[in-house]
C-alpha cells in the first residue's frame, strides 16, 4: 500500500493551497475598503447618465386614462428597487421594506392652464397586502373618503388609493376643484380598467364591525409594537364603552408559525416588564399581561395570530378578544 503522496501530487496540492491563500488574502484586503460608488451594476450607470432613455424603455400607459382636457407634460418614468430613491429619496425605504416591485410615474397638464398639472405615481407593491401597507402607513388623518375602491381618499390637492397590488398617488400642483376633478376622472378610468383590477384584500373582513373605527385600519409592515419579529400585522382601533384599544391580526403561513410567534411576543413582553394576569375567557392558549396601566392579550386561531394591544381595562381586552375569536371561528367554518 502506498502511504505517501508522489512529488507531483504534493506539488499540485501546494499550488492549489497557494492560489487559495492568495485569493483569500486579496479578497480580505479589498472588501475592507468596499466602495459602492465604484462597484455598481452597469445598468445603473447607464440609467444615471441617461435616465430618460431608461425610463422610456418600459413606457407606462398611464396616458390611456387621461381626461380629454389634459395632455402629457413629461415622459413616463420607471423605477425599480435599485433606483427608487432617485425618485423619492429618503422615503424609498418605506416602500422597499413593504415589498416594492416597480414605480411608474408621469406628469400631465391641463390643455388650457399650464399651472394646473398633476403627477401620477403607480407603485406596484407585489400584493394587495403590501399595497395596503404603504397606503395605511401614509394615510392622512381627516381626509375625505372616496368610494371608487375600498381604500381611497382625497385631500385638498391629492388622491390616494389602492387598486389590486398597486398603490396610487395622484398629486396636484394646485388645490383647485377643476384639477381635482381631472384627477378623479383619471382615477376612475384607472380603476375601471379591469386588466389591472387584481385580487382584493380579504383579511380586513376579519375585523368585527361592531365598535370598529373603520378609518383606523392599518397594516404595519415590520417591527410592530417594538417587537422585531412582528411583521405584516393589521391593526384597528375599537371603542368598547368609554375605553379605546387596538385589535391586531396577522395571517401567518402555518398554524405552528402563528403559535410560535404568539409565544415569542408573549416572552418579549415579559422580558420588557409585563406581568401575567390570570384570565378565564374561553380561548385556548390565551395570554393576558399587564404593561403599566394597560393590558395586552395574545392568542392564535389556526393560521391567525390575534390579540388586543393597549387596552385600558382587562375586561375590555377580554371582551374584544372574544369578539375577535368568534369572527375567526365563523370564517374558519
Amino acid at each position: 500500500m502506498k502511504t505517501s503522496p508522489s512529488i507531483l501530487e504534493t506539488s499540485i496540492g501546494l499550488v492549489i493551497l497557494l492560489v487559495l491563500s492568495t485569493i483569500a488574502i486579496g479578497v480580505f484586503m479589498k472588501q475592507s475598503r468596499y466602495d459602492a460608488s465604484i462597484y455598481q451594476p452597469e445598468l445603473q450607470v447607464q440609467e444615471r447618465l441617461n435616465p430618460s432613455s431608461a425610463a422610456t424603455a418600459s413606457a407606462s400607459k398611464l396616458d390611456a386614462y387621461l381626461p380629454e382636457n389634459m395632455m402629457v407634460l413629461t415622459a413616463p418614468e420607471n423605477f425599480g428597487p435599485d433606483n427608487l430613491s432617485d425618485k423619492i429619496n429618503g422615503k424609498a425605504e418605506l416602500y422597499l421594506s413593504a415589498g416594492f416591485a416597480r414605480l411608474r410615474s408621469q406628469r400631465f397638464v391641463d390643455r388650457t392652464n399650464p399651472e394646473s398639472w398633476m403627477e401620477v405615481f403607480v407603485y406596484d407593491m407585489g400584493s394587495p397586502q403590501n399595497a395596503f401597507a404603504v397606503y395605511s402607513m401614509q394615510k392622512r388623518p381627516d381626509a375625505e373618503k372616496l368610494d371608487f375602491t375600498p381604500f381611497a381618499y382625497r385631500t385638498e390637492n391629492a388622491l390616494f388609493f389602492v387598486q389590486g397590488s398597486e398603490y396610487v398617488e395622484i398629486v396636484g400642483a394646485a388645490n383647485t376643484e377643476a384639477l381635482v376633478g381631472n384627477m378623479l376622472g383619471f382615477a376612475r378610468g384607472f380603476v375601471g380598467d379591469q386588466s389591472i383590477a387584481g385580487e382584493t384584500l380579504n383579511i380586513l373582513q376579519l375585523f368585527p364591525a361592531e365598535n370598529l373605527d373603520e378609518t383606523s385600519i392599518s397594516l404595519l409592515a415590520s417591527d410592530v409594537f417594538g417587537f422585531e419579529r412582528f411583521n405584516n400585522v393589521f391593526i384597528a382601533r375599537y371603542r368598547m364603552g368609554e375605553m379605546e384599544m387596538t385589535a391586531f391580526l396577522s395571517l401567518r403561513d402555518t398554524s405552528q408559525e402563528a403559535e410560535e410567534l404568539a409565544a415569542a411576543y408573549y416572552r418579549f413582553l415579559g422580558e420588557n416588564g409585563a406581568t401575567d394576569v390570570p384570565t378565564t375567557i374561553a380561548i385556548p392558549g390565551v395570554k393576558l399581561l399587564q404593561v403599566f396601566d394597560t393590558y395586552e392579550l395574545i392568542f392564535h386561531n389556526g393560521n391567525h395570530l390575534a390579540g388586543v394591544h393597549e387596552a385600558e381595562s382587562r375586561e375590555g381586552a377580554e371582551e374584544l378578544a372574544l369578539i375577535l375569536q368568534r369572527k375567526l371561528l365563523e370564517i374558519g367554518k
Binding site: 429619496n89 422615503k91 385631500t155
Partner: peptide, 12 residues
C-alpha cells in the same frame, strides 16, 4: 410634518 421628504399632500 409627515410623509417627508416628498410629502405630496397639503395636509402634510
Amino acid at each position: 410634518m409627515t410623509n417627508g421628504p416628498t410629502g405630496g399632500s397639503l395636509s402634510d
